[in-house]
Design a protein around this nucleic acid. Structure first.
Lengths: 200, 200
DNA sequence: GAAGTTAAGTGGTCAGACCAGTAACGGCCA
DNA sequence: TGGCCGTTACTGGTCTGACCACTTAACTTC
């Protein structure tokens, strides 16, 4: 006897239903009552399943309107996870270290893969650390890495604000222009890592 | 009027309750009926909030027994996310690249910070890639980095199984013993990165 | 034709009922 | 005494039906 819990079963059934119907972001799901009716379960079970899908960022519910597919990539889930993880001083230290390490990697990757178009995009970025660096990470053409960085940056902004002189941005831009991995890394270490290690 | 949804409000209240009571893994939460009574909400709202906490891997419910705090680090959430996120080939490529980059960093960090005790712990590890490397990442003494690696590894295992000859583990161990960052990196690139880039 | 009104449908919430497990208590028998 | 076995009270799991708050669209009215 599997005696699987109904709301879990329902979760997967709805998930399958979404796939088979090929629902796209913005599309509407059947109403809770209809789902309950169609899947032959109680409405409360449907709701518990929908909560899970919502937390996963797959759907969005609007009171009075219905339940809709959500644009992929939104991550209130991540925000939530953060508030659970990020509590002590040790966690903050780890966060800073991890963020710095990953940024240095991204810088190197970006140097290897930078297209002229993306270079210009970076150059046009405001002189704000997170905006500038987001474009650098985007230039790595690795979406997963971007996601990780965005998460780290989200957390980071709750803890710290980093402002750098405009020399940093200018020097970095010329280094990227030359695709000089060593130079970019050196600048990063000089401005960012040194500053962070001092304050810590 | 915020008219915040009750189940979300309840979610945070339970979360606060857990923190304030300092509940540890294995500890029991009040029953659903008592929570509903104490927080003056319906039981269904409590249940929807509990489903979220369960999905986050914070609690575990056992029919007939109650609701319990879960040992930290278990994350069926991650498995779930994986099945949603990890669908295309591009995602897989990103995953592999990211995992390799982070592992190489961890290797370097570990070299710098490796204590004799942890070295022995690594040496005693089975010759399984993930077990071995988990101990390496643990040796970095950066818990966040460990979490990230665990997530990546979870995803990775759904896609690929990596087996290496025992020479790899032996050579790596001697490199770590010497705390030679360059040697460890070289071995890693030789065995792991080459293999992965070939198969890809 | 435009503005206001109404009705139907939707998610959000609650209360109450019942089912299905668990654990602990107490009484029974060997 | 020591081990077995119901009984019982409690737990999570599920369903139902009832409201509420809100949106939309159709309908009425001017």
């Amino acid at each position: 006897m599997t005696t699987s819990k109904v709301y879990i079963e329902t979760f997967w059934q709805i998930h399958r239903m979404i796939e088979e119907a090929g629902l796209q972001p913005g599309d509407r799901l059947p109403s809770e009552r209809e789902l309950a009716d169609r899947l032959r379960v109680g409405r409360s079970s449907v709701r518990e399943a929908l909560r899970a899908l919502e937390l996963l960022g797959l759907i969005e519910t609007r009171r009075g309107e219905g339940t809709f597919m959500k644009p992929f990539g939104d991550h209130q889930l991540i925000q939530l996870l953060g508030s659970f993880i990020l509590q002590g001083n040790r966690e903050k230290r780890d966060l800073i270290e991890t963020k710095l390490l990953i940024e240095r990697i991204c810088l190197q990757l970006a140097c290897e893969r930078l297209t002229d178009q993306k270079l210009e995009h970076i150059a046009r970025a405001e002189h704000t650390y997170d905006l500038f660096f987001q474009r650098v990470v985007e230039a790595t053409d690795n979406y997963l890495l971007l996601r990780i960085w965005l998460v780290l940056n989200d957390f980071f902004e709750h803890v710290y604000t980093l402002t750098l002189p405009s020399e940093f941005y200018e020097q970095m831009r010329t280094a990227l222009q030359k695709r000089s991995c060593e130079e970019a890394t050196a600048i990063y270490e000089q401005y960012v890592m040194q500053k962070m290690s001092k304050e810590n």
